[in-house]
Design a protein around this nucleic acid. Structure first.
Lengths: 189, 189
DNA sequence: ATCCCTTTTTGACTTTGGTCAATGGATTTT
DNA sequence: AAAATCCATTGACCAAAGTCAAAAAGGGAT
């Protein structure tokens, strides 16, 4: 198991000595996903947290035959840091590997339990919850206030790795427009 | 200070006996806002949590001379349950009273401190953070996947109190359309 | 009730993005 | 290499929302 990356990411946020990290890392399990495979399908298995150790995934919903991408997860991202109460689990939620991925995963319950023992991990959890919330909040405003072209330009300058690694029809689904429109936007630009 | 409402709302989520509630409620301060007054302006004073004890507010941003409403807060809602790290504080964020409001407020730091002493309050905080995140997540998908008419219908059936209490140009700002368009949507319907 | 001011509605026109169908390019399969 | 497949681009047309301006409808104040 290659753990340098997650160690680095954790240490950006909290203090974690090697011994603690050893203990912590034992609780992860490695999952390999082939291109096109699902990590979450129909909202099932959403009670896990996952770390993207390599690869890229898309989180999307299906509505009336169309797919809408809420988010991409790239190498170094954490997924699923909010408990998702079953009652309001979204049945159409899917997280799919766009290319071969390696995830490090742990049941959400187990993280909760660990948090009980470690102030540091609690900090980790709080930090990321706030981070993810703020990110979503900003995405929401962008979607509300900006034109597709402005959103595309934002993506270009802030998330170029996504533009480069992901087919354009996925980018379009993420921006909330049709692939043809994205093609025309690129031409204008 | 009229505290029945907040007690009721808290008890929907956590166990809280009268004595604990007494202690807790002492830490709140009452704020009265006249119509048009701001609770948060230019991102300032976002380090407070607030409970809407009466009235209705709008949370919005200004961009290129236009206003975009992210959210309404109605009687019984909590505001500001996520710590907002200063670095990414949104300078154009405002929360304004649409009509006369009464808020019960407390510095976020103080809530954090209390949480250290009470498992129940920690539960309260976690519950609401998850709740707010899920809500925003669903709003995001709606904005991404649905037409203005569909979003209007959703608002009609799920948040009728907002439709009734709020001028239509605010509803339009919330739905991401122009007031004229909303007027036409209502005619079709 | 009348006047004033704000909000909503209506109409004519423009702009933007969607739709559908065809073409072109690139990559994989055989 | 040829064929097949998938994806991106282009063009012609359509539908939906935006814009601007004017009229109508409410809501207070006097």
């Amino acid at each position: 198991m290659q753990l340098d990356l997650i160690k680095k990411e954790l240490r950006k946020v909290i203090h974690l000595d090697d011994e603690m990290f050893q203990d912590f890392s034992k609780l992860f399990r490695t999952v390999r996903l082939e291109k096109g495979e699902f990590w979450i399908k129909n909202g099932r298995r959403s009670n896990y947290i996952g770390f993207v150790n390599g690869g890229i995934l898309r989180q999307y919903v299906q509505q009336e035959g169309e797919e809408f991408i809420q988010n991409f997860f790239v190498t170094g991202d954490f997924m699923g840091l909010f408990a998702r109460p079953n009652k309001q689990r979204n049945e159409s939620l899917r997280i799919q590997a766009i290319e071969v991925c390696e995830l490090l995963v742990m049941p959400y319950e187990r993280l909760q339990c660990l948090i009980g023992f470690s102030k540091n991990l609690e900090q980790f959890s709080n930090h990321w919850q706030t981070e993810k919330y703020t990110e979503l909040d900003q995405m929401y405003v962008r979607l509300l206030a900006q034109t597709p072209e402005q959103r595309y330009r934002w993506l270009l300058s802030h998330k170029p790795e996504i533009i480069n690694q992901v087919p354009q029809y996925y980018i379009a689904q993420y921006l909330g427009i049709k692939p043809e429109t994205l093609s025309r936007i690129k031409k204008r630009a």
